[in-house]
């Protein structure tokens, strides 16, 4: 189905207990663009990503990846979740982590082939970590670790990349160079959806944004969706929001 959005959610509602975390959210992320999901704490940003990928149950609504139901199209997505859950003491090398990006295409019970290993190595090189392939994952700095997970997503060679707060707790240099990389990927025609909280970077670097606060406040080109009146609706009209908007 050509012309379909890279990722689209229709009327998604998710609640934990009686409290809705997402309320009737409609959003579209166009193909070939760098999109952000923006909103205050507790707005349901991560939940939206997970619901969109079919990783959690939704109360209602549906989600489409390139026009196909999300669950059936997961092989079109590389997902970079938030990083707290990973066990950094795990006996695994950087190279092995990135090679995991090729597991889906390798299939069950088969070894990772030479071609796949080359793809993984190229991905690692692209994030500037080729020299670290044999390090244990825990011996890296926070920024380097995040580069590894970017490389793993790259190695998946999917048309859609979905990332949850990839720059949380990351040093400025790494953030800049990874943002650069995201721009390049977009220029190569990939679609990228990132949960991000810095409005300034989103304005500067991203094409498209969904402004979320339980409901979808605005979804569109950054200049429209992050207009001051929209931000006020998402963040409230307090001084903080004005500062954000300014």
């Amino acid at each position: 189905m050509s012309g379909a959005a890279a990722l689209e959610v229709r009327r998604i509602t998710v609640s934990y207990g009686a409290r809705p975390v997402l309320w009737d959210v409609d959003a579209t992320f166009p193909t070939g663009s760098l999109s952000a999901i923006v909103g205050p704490n507790g707005a349901g940003k991560s939940t939206l990503l997970r619901a969109a990928l079919g990783l959690i149950a939704v109360d209602s609504g549906q989600s489409l990846i390139s026009g196909h139901p999300a669950r059936a199209a997961l092989d079109h997505v590389a997902y970079v979740p938030q990083r707290e859950a990973v066990d950094w003491d795990f006996p695994i090398t950087v190279g092995e982590v990135v090679a995991m990006g090729r597991y889906r295409s390798t299939g069950w019970f088969r070894r990772v082939g030479r071609e796949d290993r080359a793809i993984a190595a190229a991905a690692l090189d692209r994030v500037g970590m080729a020299a670290y392939a044999d390090r244990q994952i825990g011996q890296l700095s926070g920024g380097q670790r995040q580069r590894v997970f970017f490389a793993r997503a790259l190695a998946q060679e999917t048309p859609l990349l979905v990332m949850d707060e990839p720059f949380a707790g990351i040093d400025a240099r790494t953030q800049a160079s990874l943002l650069e990389l995201l721009g390049e990927l977009r220029d190569e025609g990939r679609s990228i959806v990132v949960v991000h909280h810095e409005l300034a970077t989103v304005r500067e670097r991203f094409d498209w944004a969904l402004l979320l606060n339980v409901r979808a406040i605005a979804c569109g080109p950054v200049s429209e969706s992050l207009a001051p009146d929209m931000l006020a609706r998402a963040y409230g009209t307090g001084a903080e929001a004005l500062q954000w908007a300014g």
Binding site: L55, L74, V77, P81, E96, M100, R111
Partner: peptide, 18 residues
Amino acid sequence: KELKASTFDPGFSQTIGL
């Protein structure tokens, strides 16, 4: 490789269908 991936990063291995 399935055991390795799902032990190291269950969330990720779910997204790649493991």
